[in-house]
């Protein structure tokens, strides 16, 4: 079987299109590359959706934590502590079993026990908490002069927030937020190891890498392939976020722009 046929058969295996049966023996390099790559679809799905939806909740949580209303402030602080203080792995387990016990209550909860929705919700809340803390930190360091200048121009309330506070906050938070995005994508690999079942063996990249390592007793091929894909993904994220960073800083003189410092060292 040529490699093209393998790609045609297994390229979209992780979302249920193509050959149903996974290879049983004589695992070729091509099969491993194709299936692990096919699993990346799920990593990207979880990462992109959680990041995009989490962004808005993160902004809300950051504003809540910075607000003077004690109820809002406490609620946001607790939300952040809850999701940053406990392991994501346990959060996945808890959410899965929570949805499982809610299942008999109402059929509405049926989709929540499958990974595509249940795990996505956990990732969404988790990234909202982590980014919320980053945005809160940035919000605290918005220069006072900027706000005073806005006041002098007669801006207040929503227009001041939209045109001054929020863009400055994003500008300050962006390098840290890039790291957060990278970690979120790394964290998506936990999904299929934490209760959420891989229905009909449709899993993410690590699921397939683990499958091959278990079958061949040889970890030295599938895991480096996985690493290759993730390094590629990381570079794409850095590129995209770098473009946004350039746009956020486009009015500043060259030397005042915040450099994208790549720091990768957090698990959750």
């Amino acid at each position: 079987m040529s490699c093209w046929e393998t790609i045609a058969d297994y390229g979209l295996r992780s979302i249920g299109i193509g050959e149903r049966v996974l290879p049983r023996e004589g695992f070729t390099l091509c099969q491993q590359f194709t299936l692990i790559g096919s699993g990346m679809i799920w990593n990207i799905y979880f990462g992109v959706l959680a990041l995009c939806s989490g962004f808005f909740l993160a902004t809300a949580v950051a504003l809540g934590k910075a607000s003077r209303n004690p109820v809002l402030q406490k609620a946001s602080a607790w939300f952040i502590f809850l999701f940053r203080g406990s392991p994501l792995f346990i959060q996945f387990f808890f959410a899965y079993f929570l949805f499982l016990s809610l299942k008999p209550v109402s059929p509405i909860f049926d989709p929540f026990t499958s990974a595509w929705l249940g795990a996505l919700i956990v990732l969404f809340l988790n990234t909202a908490a982590y980014s919320g803390e980053i945005f809160y930190g940035a919000l605290q360091s918005v220069p006072r002069g900027d706000i005073e200048a806005a006041d002098a121009y007669g801006m207040s309330g929503w227009s001041r927030f939209k045109r001054i506070t929020w863009p400055t906050m994003l500008r300050l938070a962006w390098p840290a937020y890039t790291n957060e995005a990278i970690f979120l994508f790394h964290a998506t690999t936990l999904v299929y190891f934490s209760g959420f079942p891989a229905w009909q063996q449709r899993g993410d990249a690590l699921y397939y890498a683990n499958f091959f390592a278990d079958k061949t007793f040889n970890p030295f091929i599938p895991y480096p392939i996985l690493a290759f894909y993730f390094i590629l993904l990381t570079l794409v994220i850095i590129g995209l976020f770098g473009l946004i960073n350039r746009r956020l800083n486009r009015h500043l003189p060259q030397e005042n722009r915040r450099k994208m410092a790549l720091k990768l060292n957090i698990i959750r």
Binding site: T189, F193, P219, L264
Partner: peptide, 20 residues
Amino acid sequence: IVRGVPDIAFFLFFVIALDQ
């Protein structure tokens, strides 16, 4: 290297690799 790749992949990898 260890920083660029999901940590959990390393956990799964090293346990087999070290044993072997």
